[in-house]
Amino acid sequence: MTTATMDEPARDAKAPGPRGSQRRGTTPLQSLRRSWDKHWYAWAMVAPVVIVIAVLVLYPLCYGLYLSFTNANERNVAQNIGPIHIGATYDFVGLHNYWQILSGRDGDFYPRLEWTVIWTVSCVALTYAIGLAMAMLLNRPVRFRLFYRLALILPWAVPAFIGVFAWRLMFNSQYGVFNDIITKVGLPAQDWLGTPFAQKIAVILVNIWCGVPFMMVALLGGLQAIPNELYEAAEMDGATPLQRFFNVTVPGLRPVTNTVILLSTVWTFNMFPIIYLLLGNNTTGDTDILVTHAYEMAFSGGAADYAGSATYGIVILMILVAFSTFYRRQLKTQD
């Protein structure tokens, strides 16, 4: 990271080192100085971001990592209650928390992980498929195109909690509009959010509703960036629409696809507000994803387990880092 080197050499920034000395043996200080002279401008431009992120994210993150090796909970951490100071009394427990989770002893990790993966994969895949379909429909000369585009992007402009609130009202089995409609048609009323299985389908649906606009907009731009000549050439060669899709559209979209899939996987994996807001408190716990579970540990009244929730956080981070590393490597070999 650049943070460590940024501020210190500022004092002697005006002394440029001789360029030629680069190849000769130099002290670390000299090379640092030279590096500073060359790059201080770039560093200065990234400094605001780096400082904010370092202080408000990286520092707490390291602190979370530290907590994950302890047995800290709300009863043994230090307290500064006004004039009263109570020292911390928790201990280091090494890898105990990780062992608890990864060995499956806590009984929650693997079931939650399984559902988290299903949730992430289905949300990302369906959102991508629908987003791509919509983008392709909009990427043609269509009447009322602007209207369609505005309508389809609308869910993005609505804060998530409002969208979810609307769905919750509509899903209500007794007073919701969906059951009003289908009973008018003569179908039996459904308990949309009744069983854990129905709840899972519902949260995926709502998440897709929230996520499609972003996907669609990104892919629409990707489609527009594919040079028309490629399509023309394919048409000349007599390619069917399906062939054109697989030979021109899919490869042409690859750069956008790679990015949006990576981003939405990371976001969906940790997307807990939608589940929580749609289903409320009366659940069996089967619909909790890993993040929800981590929150529960961090906030359960009177027994908040800071170490346990931090460990979950770190494990989630590891899973996602592993995924994105693997994903990017896979992409590189493809190219």
Binding site: Y59, I86, D91
Partner: peptide, 24 residues
């Protein structure tokens, strides 16, 4: 940062046997 949670303070707490209960 939460003041008391530095490693030093923690070590002190363990050594001195300070407990969170009662005292404060």
């Amino acid at each position: 940062m939460r003041r008391g949670i530095s490693a030093v303070a923690m070590a002190a707490a363990i050594v001195l046997g300070v407990t969170a209960c009662g005292g404060g």
